[in-house]
Design a protein around this nucleic acid. Structure first.
Length: 809
RNA sequence: GCCGCUGUGGUGGAAUUGGCAGACGCAAGGGAUUUAAAAUCCCUCGGGAUAAAACCCGUGUCGGUUCGAGCCCGACCAGCGGCACCA
């Protein structure tokens, strides 16, 4: 078979017949939205990871199409982002030019793969017709109060004199120059994802996602139930602390505010002023490496002020320490050194009292004792423990009007500003009179200018482009400046699955009816590295758009599958620096797209991945060769043998294969699906090799089914074979074979016969025998009789169709 | 430190979810065909023991539950991934 020729032939036919497209007019077939995470065009070519993601998933989509679904499988490009910009900085090639060029090659390669992508729905996030709507999304969130601006610390590289994205910070250092990154306060745009923390958490329960991914998201959201407690300072100022251990409130020996806490300075006494200022300065300068270290010694400073524990009435000193995070809870904690390791370390260092108020129920109480125990502090709560103690004490605090139960989340609001060029400009205008004014929707898109100096020199690249920056305030008409920042690329990818449903719409980001019809995505396939970013952001967008009335569903991705990672032959992640990158191209050239896809499907457990090895790729070519040969042989097959034992065996093999392959394809268990197809092929060879008259009708029907069940996994190849045996039109317009339950019902089943749980022999027993009959048959076996000699059967276990176990003694 | 996952032949990986461990392949060895090679086809292929069999051992380690454990429970070891001063 001339692979190159048939690939081209069928790809053209599919395109012409519109076979790859979702048919919106067809209301008969049930829709099925199969989505692969779109491509990131940072390199010019498809790598094995793309193939591994898209090839097998396309086979799944084709399989579902044959099962009668109206399948929608779009593809596009996540085209904004740092790599293109960094490449530009290095080489001088404009990000737009390199990106569009990369997209063009990748698109060609994706088409050559032979996947049934619906290219009529293609999106490229860097094009105006897309980012216009990304900006529109920003404006809707802004209107809804879900986008806001505040000053926040960002990663700053003092050597490059620029802000870095989180992804650019590797082990606390700048990825380009290895300089430790420091924090710097800048005014930034945020999305209020925390408003949805609870729903993002509870919504996970109903999703058909890998448990690992769900637990990562749960962890990331980090719900914690605790208690807020208000402390009043000597000067009358009040602040709240947050604790999950309000049962230890009787043991508070000091309180700590984060150095950034707004009361930090006002609570400082004149004598402490100098030390406090020095400490605040020190904390602000602490670099990422230091901050990341949990073994770092605790530091802090006394403010000079005191406040009162509302439960005990005791006065305790107020400290500042950077082991308290301003961004979590209230930015202030009560310190109970006896029952918290951090407080214990701090109190020990600064000579603060350590007061034990919880006793270990089962043994000695060695401090710090951080587990649940009995309250023991001469209070009305003595003797209570754990949750009960916390409930009662929280209720008591609430009754004092000093706080009460409170839920907190670890999740932070999403910082979306980037001081970068290659992204969607933030559609906001800053006016001296009116402040931050959103760009009116009818003025979108805010175009990203082409001629911009994007080499880093400490300023946002767009800020240096006067033509871009200078504009008029939409509110007062006076001179104003545009926001010089661009949106995080994750904003672009948070709604692309919606745009696919209506990619050409120039009046709206998507049509509600179309979106509601196609969504949610039925199966979403992509790498696990996006567990806490993209997948969480996309869920947030869906929920926010729902609440704004643009959608009618709660979750974007019903089922999620992560393909594994194909590593280099040395077991390391493929990378240029490791020198272990394997290119798919040479294999695709030599063996063809189908063989390469088949090999990826057969050689790995899909969700596991593993080190690349081409050991078996020849075997796949051999397998395809065997299939082709038997198909050709079947064409001239003749014979009219009566339906006998061999025919039944062949028909069994056929139906067994259909049954198992159907199940395995559904489960993304591609390696076993192909193993079953190989077995069926072997059965055909076996039948063919028999002497005597053959049943040509059966044989041809079997060969036809072989082509059909293999078709999703080797599309061009099977189209060609289907045509050879006289099939009309596309094999993908055929129904996927269904197993015949009768053919799978055998008269006799092989049983493993055990005596005292050890296998004695095997026996063919009637399939519809009762347990008693099976037992009798087993007892009649000579091997069993031998073991039984003189002993009695105490128990008999029968597993229908599998084994019988006689317990004797 | 916390959370999660994984551990099966020389090798990639299976195992109907508690029921014959090692499907399907690869590699290896032997044979057929061939002047020869490639290709193709057939046989063997977890370990031990044996002339061969019966038999014994075997799913990271050690225990447990069960008629029966790769699968469930407990403790540990190793590797991978995520989070990490979240009060």
């Amino acid at each position: 078979m001339d692979i190159k020729k048939i690939e081209k032939k069928w790809q053209e036919r599919w395109e012409k017949a519109g076979l790859n497209r979702f048919d919106p007019a067809d209301k008969e077939r049930e829709k099925l939205y199969v989505l692969e995470m779109f491509s990131y065009p940072s390199g010019a070519k498809l790598h094995i990871g793309h193939w591994y993601n898209y090839g097998p998933t396309d086979s799944y989509a084709r399989f579902k199409r044959m099962q009668g679904y109206n399948v929608f499988q779009p593809m596009g490009f996540d085209a904004f982002g740092l790599p293109a910009e960094n490449y530009a900085i290095k080489t001088g090639v404009h990000p737009k030019d390199s990106t569009l060029r990369n997209i063009e090659t990748m698109e060609g390669q994706l088409r050559a793969m032979g996947a049934m992508f619906d290219w009529s729905a293609e999106v490229k996030t860097c094009n105006e017709d897309y980012y216009k709507w990304t900006q529109w999304m920003f404006l809707q969130l802004y209107k809804k109060g879900l986008a806001y601006r505040k000053e926040a610390p960002v990663n700053w590289c003092p050597a490059c004199n620029t802000v870095l994205a989180n992804e650019q910070v590797v082990d606390g250092k700048c990825e380009r120059c290895d300089t430790p990154v420091v924090r710097k306060n800048l005014t930034q745009w945020f999305f209020k994802i925390t408003d949805y923390a609870e729903e993002l958490l509870s919504g996970l329960d109903g999703l058909d996602w890998p448990e690992k991914t769900k637990s990562m998201q749960r962890n990331w959201i980090g719900k914690s139930t605790g208690c807020e407690i208000e402390f009043e300072c000597d000067n009358g100022e009040k602040f709240k602390v947050y604790t999950t251990r309000c049962d230890t409130v009787y043991g508070v020996s000091y309180v700590v505010l984060a150095p950034e806490h707004p009361l930090a300075r006002s609570l400082t006494t004149p004598e402490q002023r100098e030390a406090v200022e020095a400490y605040i300065d020190y904390a602000a300068r602490a670099n990422e490496i230091e901050r990341l270290s949990s073994t770092r010694e605790k530091t802090g400073v006394f403010t000079g002020s005191y406040c009162t524990n509302p439960v005990t009435g005791k006065r305790v000193p107020i400290y500042l320490a950077d082991y308290v995070l301003y961004s979590y809870g209230t930015g202030a904690v009560m310190a109970v050194p006896a029952h918290d390791e951090r407080d214990f370390a701090f109190a020990t260092k600064y000579g603060l009292p350590i007061v034990k108020v919880i006793e270990n129920r089962d043994g000695e109480t060695t401090l710090p004792f951080t587990e649940d125990g009995l309250v023991a502090c001469n209070s009305q709560f003595d003797g209570l423990a754990g949750e009960e103690a916390r409930d009662k004490i929280a209720a008591y605090i609430a009754s004092l009007g000093k706080g009460g139960k409170k839920v907190n989340y670890r999740l932070r609001d999403w910082l979306v500003s980037r001081q970068r060029y290659w992204g969607a400009p933030i559609p906001v205008i800053h006016c001296e009179k009116c402040g931050a004014v959103p760009v009116p929707e009818n003025e979108l898109p805010v175009r990203l200018p082409y001629d911009v100096e994007f080499r880093p020199d400490g300023k946002s690249p767009l800020a240096k482009c006067e033509k871009f920056m200078n504009t008029a305030c939409p509110q007062c008409g006076g001179p104003a400046r545009r926001d010089p920042d661009t949106l995080d690329t994750f904003v672009c990818s948070s709604w692309y699955y919606l745009r696919y449903t209506d990619a050409k719409n120039d009046r709206a980001p998507f049509d509600r009816e179309k979106a509601d019809r196609l969504l949610p995505v039925d199966v979403y396939v992509g790498g696990a590295e996006h567990s806490c970013m993209h997948l969480l952001y996309a869920r947030f967008f869906t929920k926010a758009l729902r609440d704004m009335g643009y959608l009618d569903f709660d979750e974007p991705f019903k089922r999620l599958v992560h393909q594994g990672v194909i590593l280099g032959p040395d077991g390391n992640r493929m990378s240029k620096s490791h020198g272990n990158v394997v290119s798919p191209d040479e294999y695709v050239n030599e063996y063809g797209a189908d063989a390469f896809r088949l090999y990826l499907m057969f050689g790995f457990s899909y969700t596991e991945g593993g080190p690349w090895s081409d050991d078996g790729i020849k075997a796949i070519a051999r397998f395809m060769d065997r299939v082709e040969k038997i198909v050709i042989r079947s064409i001239a097959y003749s014979g009219n043998a009566p339906y006998g034992h061999e025919e039944r065996a062949l028909n069994y093999a056929r139906n067994y294969a259909i049954q198992r392959v159907t199940r395995d394809m559904e489960a993304f268990s591609f390696n076993t699906a192909i193993a079953r197809i190989m077995e069926f092929t072997n059965a055909l060879y076996k039948y063919d090799g028999l002497t005597g008259e053959k049943d040509a009708t059966l044989f041809k029907a079997c060969v036809r089914d072989l082509i059909l069940i293999l078709a999703p996994c080797a599309p061009h190849f099977c189209e060609e074979l289907f045509e050879r045996i006289g099939g009309k039109g596309s094999v993908f317009d055929e129904s996927y074979p269904r197993e015949d339950a009768d053919a799978l019902r055998l008269d006799e089943t092989e049983y493993a016969v055990q005596v005292n749980s050890r296998i004695v022999c095997k026996a063919m027993l009637s399939s519809d025998a009762s347990n008693e009959e099976i037992e009798q048959a087993a007892l009649a076996l000579p091997e069993v009789a031998e073991k039984l000699a003189g002993k009695t059967v105490k128990k008999c276990i029968v597993v229908k169709g599998r084994l019988i176990n006689l317990i004797i003694g």
